[in-house]
Computed example of a mutant assay.
Amino acid sequence: MRAAVEAGHAVALATSAGVQDAVGPELASEVEFLAAGAMPMEFSEDAARRTGADPFHPGPELIGEIFGGSRVDLGGADTISLGREWAPDLIVTETFDAIGPMVAADLGIPWHQVGIGPATPAVITEIERAAASRYRNAGLNPVEPRSYIDPCPPQMQDPEWSSRVPVLPLRTQAHRRPHDMAFELPAFADPAKPTVLVTLGTIFSDPDVLDTTVGAMAGHEVNVIATVGSSLRNPAAGDDGSRPSRRPDGVEVHYVPFVPLGQLLDRADLVVGAGGSGTVLGALAHGFPMVLWPQGADQPINAARAAAAGAAITVDSGDEIFLALRRVLGEDTFRDRAQAVAAENDARPSPADVVKEITQ
């Protein structure tokens, strides 16, 4: 969106009204916010009620019902109406979104799909299956996107995957705001030690999992920055509501609330996390090796691909983190592979290049 604005295009974002406060700081002032549809928890719970499945550990079928079914039911008509009013010439939508393609079909305009991590064809098939009946009910005929915009360096992409449409590579980057606010972090007593960023992302920030992960730092000569995600209070302020957060003996830990990932990575040397696509791709863009303990959603896929690229070790439990971290700290191979991915990523087209391509 920033690249499109800088190129002189009119840009709007259509999404749930409830996220406007959260995304407001991310948007250029020229981007118009079009509020439509339900919040993620609402449409996820709706799909879970209909299927009886667990929304926090969904398989492909439930993901299809969440994004191709409930989300469309609770926001498709409103977004189509906004689309008719705003009258775009082009739509860009991420892979899990089934509403953007409906708006494109309604208006008879081209659309492009952008990935958020390694391709997940089984999931996309389920989303399309669930959305098909919604297309029929709306009297719409879906059309293929003009391209698939892929932010995933080739070392991270499934070698068996092939796209039905042309692929436009995109340089991935860690999340930053247009004008990052100052991020105050006390200096570590021994800044010569490697700094580990421990982050479970914004959704799977279970306090027990976070405590276990931070606890695994004990016995290592490291400093730690740990994020508390959006589902926890800030333990640094002593308000987690239950108990003090883990601070292993001999390890200095700084807990932080939500901060754009790029700013955190500027202070780190390696990452221990759950394997969300933003974390994995952002860390690789910096050339950082990882230890990944997947918790749900697409995290097992991202972690497996990072491990296959040789840039990460994937673990199945908190008990395995200690030895995995020892290997990542002690063996140069993981950092070398991560830096090779970063070099490949640096050579890929920029967002400005992709905007120019799709608008031509």
Rank of each mutant, 00 (worst) to 15 (best):
P159D: 09
S162G: 04
A122C: 02
R164A: 14
D158N: 15
P194M: 06
R136W: 04
A138L: 15
E144P: 04
Y135R: 10
A130L: 08
R176E: 11
P159E: 10
R171F: 06
D150H: 05
S162L: 11
R164H: 09
R146H: 07
P151N: 03
Y135D: 08
N137H: 11
P121S: 08
R134K: 14
R171A: 07
P159R: 10
P191F: 06
F188Y: 05
L140W: 11
A187R: 11
K193L: 05
N141R: 13
A189S: 14
P151A: 04
C152K: 00
D158H: 07
V143L: 10
P118S: 13
F183H: 06
M181F: 06
T125A: 15
D180M: 11
G139F: 09
I127G: 02
I149T: 02
A192G: 12
P186N: 12
E126W: 03
P151S: 05
Q157F: 04
V123Q: 03
I124L: 14
P121H: 07
T125I: 02
I124E: 11
R129E: 13
R134H: 14
P154D: 09
P118N: 10
F188M: 01
T172Q: 09
Q173F: 11
P142S: 11
I127K: 04
D158F: 05
P186T: 06
T195I: 04
H175G: 01
A119R: 01
A131W: 02
A119K: 01
P191N: 10
R164E: 12
P166G: 09
M156S: 02
Q173N: 13
Y148E: 06
P142A: 12
Q155S: 13
A131V: 03
R134G: 05
L170N: 05
P166T: 07
Q155W: 04
E184W: 05
H179V: 15
A192W: 00
I124T: 14
K193N: 00
D150Y: 01
Y135H: 12
S162K: 15
M181T: 12
P194G: 07
Y135S: 10
S162P: 00
Q157R: 14
Y148Q: 05
S163C: 11
V123P: 00
P159N: 10
A189F: 00
A119Y: 02
T125Y: 02
P121R: 07
P169S: 08
A122M: 07
I149M: 03
H179M: 08
P186C: 02
L170C: 07
P142K: 11
A189I: 00
H179N: 13
S133I: 12
C152N: 08
D180A: 14
W161Q: 06
D158A: 09
D150S: 15
P151R: 01
N141P: 00
P186S: 13
A131I: 03
E144Y: 02
N141S: 15
P194D: 05
A174Y: 03
A119P: 04
